[in-house]
Design a binder for these strands. Structure first.
Length: 567
RNA sequence: CGGGGCGUAGCGCAGCCCGGUUAGCGCGCCUGGUUCGGGACCAGGAGGUCGGUGGUUCAACUCCACUCGCCCCGACCA
């Protein structure tokens, strides 16, 4: 294809709206344009990448025996009432009305639709297991669309759903799907982690996220060389079992700590490390007050706190409430001497304290040599702190390292959540009814484009891996006014196309610098430059990723370039 | 939804605080010419409801009110 007649609008400057590299580059390289917040057009180059990724996904889905289908975008709202998901989706569901005032939703995902198919058309155990998938646009009215196509309100997703007679059968498909997802991401040339995850509103028992590693990704994960990885939100804070607070062991004593309200101040003043101090955080959970103890060198993970008080409102106590509850000002709270109605919960790491330093519930005073069990009672130990780099792997005990990434895939074992709610059952060998055991598997196609760019770019632009590049080759005549150069470029483009190599010919009458910059920006893997060396019968092949340049005789240009592209 | 910021040509911005002729600059775009290996040069040209509505005023891009849109930070997710 010829650039001069293609819609590949590039920008020299960064659009003001784009924050992260992938968003900036997708706009600058002419891959996408925004219609409105969270809604994008894929221009020719961007759409070519989408189609490449879809192709890989289709091959891998078909390879594990999934069948492609196409489900509707328009969903009658009643199906969400039936599954009970109207509430859990809440405002994220796009709703609209038809001419007769009947309410519809734009499909955010298709568990309901596919479960209805299974209910009506997979009535016998003989047909199981089955796995169906589709690739189409999903709609979610995201609370906050962000980063271009990374979090859009309209996006392209591959979603698959499997139906089983037994948990073992689900396991098998789940593992096959994991393998397929691994191969998809590997074929796209990206490094990634598989992460234990929360199942969120999709529901179900077990789930894993596939996270493409990238510096500015939204997900933060902790991972181990043994292969284990977790989302930092749910990772437990685990350390070597060295005793904490050892140096403060000894007699229970009151110490004067004038104006020392932070852990740093207290530990500095008493010449101990922050980890010897125990923080007491006071919350209101539902209708009772609770005290939470965590090591002084740790932060409380509010997500875990909310989960512990499942469903109840949880909030910080204000200064007045703390004064009333403990008798002391903010900054000097502690677990000793609180009323019996105030339950004390502690993070698991607090088990490691022989004795601790805590606030005395009295101005300018702390207590040292405090022992749980003797001086106060801990109602329950839980995992409550934010995990951090260096915490230990629960599988092998090695220290975890932190990285960021973008979630591109998520697989779930749903169990019977939807089949029970929607009464979808099959008959077994004995003629007995059972709800289907289900799995569902999502993969963000449009997000994958951004993830690839996020991981593979340099200061000059995108660096596509060949498997998902819009095309493998760009032919760049340096001077379009030189008849010999121009004719050679046209001829080569035609020959490549004839050989099945999709080629972009930059036939624009622009100065060479612009063409070089644009070629780097759009990131096509190989660039064939036709310039002054043509007089000596030579052209140049540049490898975008390594910037390596090969000089090739024109006569061999097609053959030699094809060798590179094929390998 | 809470907090912060921004709407002036396709993109990036100035002007506004302190109201006053025809609203400016760079890039891009069009025409002609010179150039041609890393964002060239000369000459000419097109392109604007200054986000919208209302108000104040002799006069509003500029001041006031309301409103719409967009971006960033937080709770959510492919």
């Amino acid at each position: 294809m010829r650039w001069s007649k293609s819609c590949i609008p590039t920008f020299k400057e960064n659009p003001a709206e784009a924050e992260i590299p992938s968003h900036r580059l997708m706009l600058r390289a002419g891959l996408i344009r925004k219609l409105t917040s969270g809604v994008y057009t894929f221009l020719p180059l961007g759409f070519k990448v989408i189609k490449k990724i879809e192709g890989i996904v289709r091959e891998e889905m078909d390879a594990i025996g999934c069948q492609e289908v196409l489900m509707p975008v328009l969903h009658p709202i009643e199906i969400y009432e039936e599954s009970g998901r109207l509430g859990s989706f809440g405002p994220e569901l796009f709703k609209l009305q038809d001419g007769r005032q009947r309410t519809f939703a734009l499909g955010p995902t298709h568990e309901e639709v596919i479960t209805m198919i299974a209910r009506d058309d997979m009535k016998s155990y003989r047909t199981l297991p089955q796995c169906l998938y589709q690739i189409l646009i999903k709609f979610r009215d995201e609370i906050r669309p962000r980063y271009g196509v990374v979090r859009a309100r309209e996006f392209i997703m591959k979603d698959a759903y499997s139906f089983h007679q037994s948990a073992e059968s689900l396991d098998e498909t789940y593992r096959a799907m994991e393998g397929a997802y691994r191969r998809i991401i590997e074929r796209c040339g990206l490094s990634y982690r598989i992460v234990e995850a929360d199942s969120g509103y999709i529901g179900g028992d077990e789930s894993h996220e596939f996270v493409v590693l990238a510096g500015s990704g939204e997900s933060t994960i902790l991972s181990c060389s043994c292969g284990y990885a977790v989302n930092i939100e749910r990772a437990a804070g685990r350390e070597l079992e060295t005793p904490r607070g050892a140096r403060s062991a000894g007699a229970f004593e009151r110490v004067h700590t004038p104006g020392m309200t932070t852990v740093e101040q207290v530990s500095g003043f008493l010449s101990v490390t922050p980890r010897e101090v125990v923080k007491t955080l006071l919350y209101r959970a539902g209708d009772r007050d609770v005290a939470i103890l965590i090591p002084g060198d740790r932060e409380l993970n509010d997500i875990k706190l909310v989960r512990m008080f499942d469903g109840e409102q949880v909030r910080f106590l204000d200064d007045g409430e703390i004064k009333r509850l403990t008798g002391g000002p903010v900054g000097f709270s502690g677990p000793v001497g609180l009323s019996a109605e105030t339950a004390v919960y502690a993070d698991n790491l607090v088990k490691g304290y022989d004795s601790m330093i805590v606030g005395a519930n009295e101005a300018d005073t702390h207590l040292r040599g405090v022992k749980a069990g003797r001086d106060f009672t801990i109602a329950k130990f839980e995992d409550l702190v934010w995990a951090r780099e260096g915490d230990l792997c629960p599988k092998c005990g090695a220290p975890l390292t932190k990285s960021n990434g973008l979630e591109v895939g998520h697989i779930f074992k749903l169990g019977t959540k939807y089949s029970r709610a929607m009464n979808a059952e099959f008959l077994d060998e004995a003629g007995k009814s059972h709800p289907f055991i289900m799995g569902c598997y999502g993969f963000g196609i449009s997000r994958m484009v951004a993830a690839a760019i996020e991981q593979l770019h340099d200061k000059d632009g995108i660096v596509w891996p060949q498997s998902i590049a819009p095309m493998p080759l760009i032919v760049l005549p340096v001077n379009s006014n030189d008849a010999e150069i121009r004719d050679t470029a046209y001829r080569l483009e035609e020959e490549f196309e004839r050989c099945g190599i999709e080629t972009l010919l930059d036939d624009r009458d622009l100065s060479p610098g612009i063409k070089f910059k644009d070629a780097d920006l759009v990131g096509i893997p190989y660039r064939l430059t036709i310039g002054k060396k043509l007089k000596d019968g030579m052209v140049e092949l540049l490898h975008r990723s390594s910037r390596r340049v090969e000089e090739i005789p024109v006569a061999e240009a097609v053959e030699r370039t094809m060798e590179r592209i094929k390998t």
